[in-house]
């Protein structure tokens, strides 16, 4: 592990952008549309403008890592999507660790292999695009951490006493350069949540994968994913976690949707709601519950909402 790859938030984002390009996530806009909306609400409170573009497509990374297609497609798709952002002279902010990790990795490959850059540009030129490699690729959580003080200053609902178990998500931590924390033992999300009064819980299997990454939830659910998730939830429950947060809608699917199956198989109810970090920030900043889309969650949030003294419909 190389310490130099960790970068301070002020160095990563030297000046706070007036406008960002928000990269649509397939899972974030379909499985948990409240995630995308929470981000928009929080950015609105910070006075940061959002640009999205209907011409942006899926990042295509997930199926690449399932070996369902060869890298040529994803290299071309990445070049095309990022070319769209470059035309607007903006930086790209992702809210899915998949979109973030795959775009970072594929852009890195493009920038360091002139032959691949040429190949991708030759293909997308047929559609009228050209990718130079200029746009910066960030995760929205990096903006949250960078603007910690500003966010806390706007908080209206204290998260006091809420025991939050953070799930970072592998594809953020696996980046080898320019991320906010040590992938081996990150703490910045806990630090952020503690600033809102929450009580972060460092449960034993905190860094264990959501298990769904790369399709094993489709092909090896019973043989690998469930025993793996059982360990994770067991340790979270023993540590008293009230709520788990993710920064990846894909992780959210694995952790939230699988809990009824774990209960059925192992006879143990975990009943730990799983939401996006941005949705929790939305709660703290007083975004109305109906703007956060918790109805899409398999494990209901009732206990958390009660603990925070909020009423449904507010």
């Amino acid at each position: 592990m190389n310490e130099a790859r960790v970068i301070a938030p002020e160095e990563l984002i030297p000046s706070v952008p007036e406008t960002i390009f928000l990269f649509r996530s397939c899972t974030g806009s379909m499985e948990y549309p409240g995630t995308e909306n929470a981000i928009k609400e929080v950015l609105d409170k910070l006075g940061i403008n959002i640009v999205m573009d209907p011409d942006q497509t899926c990042c295509s990374g997930y199926l690449l890592t399932c070996s369902a297609h060869k890298p040529e497609l994803s290299l071309a798709v990445t070049a095309r999507n990022l070319a769209i952002v470059e035309q607007k002279n903006l930086d790209t902010y992702m809210f899915c660790n998949g979109c973030y990790g795959y775009n970072r990795e594929l852009a890195h490959i493009l920038k360091h292999n002139p032959a691949y850059m040429q190949m991708a540009n030759d293909i997308i030129a047929k559609q009228g695009y050209h990718y130079e490699g200029k746009t910066g690729i960030f995760h929205v959580q990096e903006l949250w951490y960078r603007l910690k003080k500003e966010l806390v200053a706007r908080a209206v609902v204290p998260l006091n006493g809420l025991k939050v178990g953070v799930h970072y998500g592998c594809h953020y931590l696996a980046q080898q350069y320019q991320i906010l924390d040590d992938g081996g033992y990150p703490t910045f999300q806990e630090e952020l949540l503690a600033a809102f009064g929450a009580e972060p819980v460092f449960y034993k299997e905190r860094q264990a994968c959501c298990g769904y990454s790369v399709g094993r939830g489709f092909t090896h659910k019973e043989s690998v994913v469930q025993p793996h998730l059982f360990k994770k939830f067991k340790s979270a429950k023993e540590a008293g976690v009230d709520l788990m947060t993710t920064t990846c809608p894909g992780c959210n699917v694995g952790l939230d949707r699988e809990q009824p199956n774990l209960a059925k198989r192992y006879g143990e109810e975990f009943d730990i709601p799983v939401i996006d970090l941005s949705q929790l920030l939305g709660l703290a900043l007083g975004v109305p519950l109906n703007k956060l889309g918790f109805e899409a969650n398999t494990v209901p949030l009732d206990k958390v909402i009660e603990k925070l003294g909020l009423k449904k419909g507010e």
Binding site: M1, T65, C66, G101, C170, H171, L173, A174, Q176, G183, G184, Q207, C209, G211, S213, V214, R216, T219, H220, S223, V224
Partner: peptide
């Protein structure tokens, strides 16, 4: 076929 592609190997 069991690898999750979590990249935990790459991280460390």
């Amino acid at each position: 076929w069991r690898c999750f592609w979590c990249a935990g190997c790459y991280t460390v």
